[in-house]
Computed example of a mutant assay.
Amino acid sequence: MTPTAKTRDNLLRGRTLLIGTALVGCSVFVMTACSSGGDENPKASSTPSSAKSSVAPSNIADPDAAAKRKVLGSYDRMWTEQMKAYHKADEKGTDLQKYATLDALGQVRNDLARMREAGTVVRGDVEHSKTEVKSIDLSAKTPKASVKDCMDISGWQTYNTRDKRVQPMPPGQKTRYWATATAERWDGQWLITSLTPHGDDAC
């Protein structure tokens, strides 16, 4: 039975989709020492960020291959829309709500508000490779999946629009490391419910 919008709003339990700026502790890119914990603050670019939507090759046909492609498609588009928002510190004009849970979207909005308060935006983009669906359960009442992704933040910059300067990354910051994400399917659409960076786990 297709859940109502109210039921979906009540049941989705998204964690943070924070991309990270110098403003927020334990952000995805800046505070790698907090890679799996800390403040749960949230979420792809004027040029789309490419989470490679390819499933690891196999000699045996994967019955879940089509569903995995859809998961990766939502993951890729979530990044694209999220980066659009961070490039201007504003969610307007993006489709983030199509690819993130309501709770996760709230975290994105919190992060964007902090960026606006500090006068910062994002420049550049995040690259993705080795992206794959590690697990998927289509038999669950709410289908679920997990994603693993190698993120490259070497092209990422936090720019202070007031000081007209780029804020440097902390010394020792890794520029390539693993991230994991979870997703759920609601009304036929895969939504990203959490994104966790593993800043100490280089890829």
Rank of each mutant, 00 (worst) to 15 (best):
Val121Asn: 03
Ile60Ala: 09
Trp186Pro: 00
Glu91Ser: 12
Gly188Pro: 11
Leu195Lys: 01
Cys203Ile: 11
Gln82Ile: 01
Thr2Met: 06
Arg165Leu: 13
Trp186Gly: 03
Gln167Asp: 08
Thr94Gln: 02
Leu12Tyr: 00
Trp178Gly: 04
Tyr99Thr: 00
Glu117Asn: 09
Glu91His: 00
Ser27Lys: 01
Arg123Thr: 06
Phe29Ile: 04
Arg109Gly: 01
Asp76Ala: 12
Lys164Leu: 15
Pro143Gly: 00
Thr182Trp: 13
Val71Gly: 02
Ala183Lys: 05
Ser58Pro: 05
Gln157Asn: 06
Gln82Leu: 13
Trp79Glu: 13
Pro197His: 08
Gln167Thr: 06
Asn41Lys: 05
Ser27Val: 02
Leu17Thr: 08
Val55Glu: 04
Pro3Phe: 10
Ala51Ser: 14
Ala179Gly: 10
Leu11Cys: 10
Thr196His: 10
Ser36Phe: 09
Asp95Arg: 14
Met83His: 07
Asp39Met: 11
Ala202Ser: 12
Asp125Phe: 06
Ala67Gln: 15
Ala118Ser: 13
Met83Trp: 08
Val126Glu: 01
Trp190Ile: 08
Pro48Val: 11
Ala44Pro: 06
Ser54Asn: 06
Pro3Lys: 02
Ser45Gln: 14
Cys26Ser: 11
Asp90Val: 00
Gly155Leu: 15
Asn10Ile: 07
Lys68Met: 13
Leu105Ile: 00
Val147Phe: 14
Val147Asp: 04
Pro57Gly: 06
Arg185Phe: 05
Ala22His: 08
Pro168Trp: 03
Leu11Met: 12
Gln173Ile: 07
Pro48Trp: 04
Ala181Arg: 04
Ala202His: 11
Ala181His: 07
Tyr177Val: 02
Glu81Gln: 15
Thr101Tyr: 10
Asp201Val: 09
Thr180Asp: 04
Leu17Pro: 00
Tyr177Arg: 02
Gly73Glu: 06
Asp149Asn: 13
Leu11Thr: 02
Leu17Phe: 06
Asp9Gly: 00
Lys134His: 04
Gln97Thr: 09
Arg185Val: 01
Thr16His: 08
Gly199Pro: 04
Leu17Gly: 10
Ile19Tyr: 08
Pro57His: 10
Thr196Ser: 11
Asp125Asn: 11
Asn10Gln: 10
Asp64Tyr: 09
Cys26Ile: 02
Val108Met: 05
Glu81Asn: 10
Ala183Gly: 08
Lys174Ile: 03
Glu81Met: 15
Cys34Lys: 03
Leu102Gly: 06
Thr7Ala: 14
Leu96Tyr: 03
Glu40Leu: 09
Lys164Val: 07
Tyr177Gln: 00
Lys68Gln: 12
Leu72Met: 11
Ser53Ile: 11
Thr158Ile: 12
Ile60His: 05
Ser35Met: 15
Lys6Ser: 09
Ala118Asn: 08
Arg116Lys: 14
Ala61Lys: 14
Glu91Asp: 13
Tyr177Trp: 11
Gln107Ile: 04
Val121Met: 05
Gly119Ser: 12
Tyr86Lys: 04
